[in-house]
């Protein structure tokens, strides 16, 4: 096909692309020029491109961050909490989707699903105050009912566990949506054939359902791995208290304290940039790994 005919046939499609591309250029890529702050000393009065480079070939802030024990602690906490989330949090919605899928009455299934989605719409601020009333060491409802005083939120180890459990409580139901959508794509004929062969329920789940949603699981896993260094702000910030700061200070809180509260914009930009770069590397790595194992990956 010649260039002319190609453009005549598909030209309107390219025209349609102009708006979204303009959006990305103006609102996503242009502001990115301020990434330069990571390599310069921030000055509110002068745009970053007019400021001279920072010390050590511009890497002053990166060096400063990695010499700062508080940043290293935040880095460790971020990775640790995210790994726990990945290991414990990822299988949960799959399990729940499988359970939901086995429910026989459609109406009951729909009601259950809706109830499971609801916690997703609560903000972390609300959840943290509810959890405090429930799990406080002495005044909390759970401890009062059991007649104990377990420091659910008061020691670092317990706090991590609560962080993960509350995360699952909030997002598990919501995350089943994608798996449930994938489940509907599995051909019913496969189940019928298995039944003819006398396969049990568990066998069907193992040999038909799980392989049917394998690629979805892997895509979501890749995306989650991309967030291994990313960190939410609301969740650790609202759940934290002074007793457990050793476990709860994540990179996002470090950036908030230093950048927004302490005006160290260059340092926090450097930390943010480091975070993004590592995330992209993880994303690329896990994607190529998935491809090597014969999966489609995400692009």
């Amino acid at each position: 096909m010649s260039w002319g005919t190609y453009m005549r046939r598909y030209g309107t499609l390219y025209l349609l692309l102009i708006l979204p591309i303009a959006f990305f250029v103006i609102f996503r890529y242009t502001p990115m020029s301020y990434i330069l702050l990571a390599f310069k000393k921030n000055n509110i009065l002068v745009p970053p491109w007019q400021v001279p480079w920072a010390k050590n070939n511009g890497f002053e802030w990166f060096i400063k961050a990695f010499q700062d024990q508080n940043f290293l602690a935040a880095l460790r906490n971020t990775i640790f909490l995210n790994l726990l989330d990945l290991l414990i949090g990822t299988p949960m919605p799959i399990l729940m989707a499988l359970l939901l899928n086995e429910l026989a009455f459609p109406k009951y299934k729909r009601v259950t699903q809706t109830i499971l989605y609801l916690p997703h719409f609560l903000s972390w601020v609300i959840i943290s105050s509810i959890s405090l009333r429930l799990f406080a060491t002495n005044d909390g409802m759970i401890n009062k009912l059991m007649g104990t005083s377990i420091p659910f939120l008061g020691t670092e180890g317990n706090w991590r566990a609560m962080y993960i459990v509350l995360g699952i409580w909030k997002e598990c139901g919501w995350n089943t949506i994608i798996y449930l959508a994938a489940l509907t794509g599995i051909s019913p004929e496969l189940y019928e054939a298995a039944e003819v062969d006398g396969a049990s329920r568990l066998r069907k789940i193992w040999h038909i359902t799980l392989p049917g949603i394998r690629s979805t699981i892997i895509v979501l896993l890749i995306m989650n791995l991309g967030h291994i260094l990313g960190s939410e702000f609301d969740r650790p910030f609202t759940l934290s208290n002074p007793l457990v700061v050793g476990a709860s200070k994540t990179i996002s809180i470090f950036v908030y304290e230093r950048g927004i509260q302490g005006s160290q914009f260059s340092l926090s930009t450097a930390v943010g940039l480091f975070q993004s770069v590592v995330c992209v590397i993880f994303l690329l790595l896990s994607n190529s790994l998935a491809k090597r194992f014969g999966e489609r990956g995400i692009w």
């Binding site: 405090l132 406080a136 002495n138 005044d139 909390g140 005083s149 008061g154 208290n241 002074p242 007793l243």
Partner: peptide, 8 residues
């Protein structure tokens, strides 16, 4: 107060 450390 036992739980003072949890309330911010």
């Amino acid at each position: 107060w036992k739980d003072f450390g949890l309330y911010t």
